[in-house]
Design a protein around this nucleic acid. Structure first.
Lengths: 192, 192
DNA sequence: GGCGACCCATACTCGACCGTATGGACATCT
DNA sequence: AGATGTCCATACGGTCGAGTATGGGTCGCC
């Protein structure tokens, strides 16, 4: 009757492959995005895949597009609702620090910047985010000349943190220490 | 007579393979480190390689070890000769900003943190460097609690900058603008 | 109830790359 | 000169994963 009650529904759609691809990327990296591996995980075979997509690269392309559009709505949409410009940046830092899942794909894509398909995507996303930080810093009172550089510095610190403490498992900083680090970032990077 | 005058000397040594491997890593990434490709570049065949190394992983291991030891002498050795602790950090920033070649391998290894062999190497190197920054910040007058967090922040900014402006080719910042960014970093991160 | 459109399984080809086996070229030493 | 050790070429086997070919099964629709 209801076709969407069984978790093992056999018919798949292109969207299913894309979200599975993103999950695989988040867990194993772009290099591990293999057709047959994904097929096994979805309970089907390659025959299914090559009906929905022309090639492996096409799936990667579609998955990246989906991720880029999703990230735009999610990350920036929440923050723009904070009215006070002086509270906006600290709040952004604290929220971004306590999320986990959205950063997984981003960190995985940082390790795949040798792949020609991910470079333009990451370039666009990073560009938009630093531009967002730029206006936020200007609204917080920083002169235009400094605001852009501060935005670059802030976003670089974010990216570097991901690599050092997320991908790499540096001395696995604990919770209290991590909170202290975030507050130190806020005190150092955000003008009073 | 002199066996080392011809640039096309046919006999190779294990060291030759290691430096060629590092060059290949810097240009194409760890994933492109293929035995036959390297052999072609060196003008020999696989037969040579498997005389010097037992496996492909052994070459990678040896190349990483060489890079780690070389980097230790080069990067940190220069800086420790600057006497005044208050001039040490700005000088470090400016020197590191205007080098190029030493960062290429590091940036390439950042994109290979999924490989189990490079993770411990990068962990050690990053750990030592932030520890170095930590003592430098303490000597510059920062209280111990803040010094470590500032060191983490600084090194994260360095790593992130590599990814965003080196690997990724973000709006290809020009020279003057880049110098302004470095000075902004100094003004923001280093206590007066 | 038959006819498409849609979705998937099976079986195969093909290329890239790792590793092995084996013999040859060249130097040095005795 | 001959023996030995060092360095490399050639040829082969084996794996893994992408992409192709082709047929079968299921659902909706006239």
């Amino acid at each position: 009757m209801d076709p969407s009650q069984k978790p093992e529904r056999t018919r798949l759609t292109a969207e299913d492959w894309e979200v599975a691809a993103l999950q695989m990327i988040a867990e194993q990296g772009v290099g591990a995005l293999a057709v047959e591996a994904l097929a096994r995980q979805l309970g089907v075979t390659k025959g299914s895949f090559y009906w929905h997509f022309r090639t492996r690269e096409a799936l990667l392309q579609a998955a990246l597009e989906r991720w880029e559009q999703y990230g735009e709505r999610e990350v920036l949409g929440q923050i723009e609702q904070i009215a006070d410009p002086h509270q906006r940046l600290p709040e952004l830092f604290r929220r971004a620090a306590h999320e986990v899942q959205p950063h997984r794909v981003y960190a995985a894509l940082l390790k795949a910047l040798d792949h020609p398909l991910v470079v333009p995507v990451m370039a666009r996303v990073s560009q938009r985010r630093t531009e967002f930080l730029n206006t936020a810093y200007r609204e917080a009172g920083l002169p235009p000349g400094e605001a852009l550089n501060r935005a670059r510095l802030t976003y670089a610190a974010y990216v570097g943190f991901l690599q050092l403490n997320f991908t790499l498992g540096l001395p696995r900083i604990n919770h209290e220490e991590f909170d202290a680090y975030v507050e130190h970032m806020i005190a150092t990077l955000i003008p009073a």
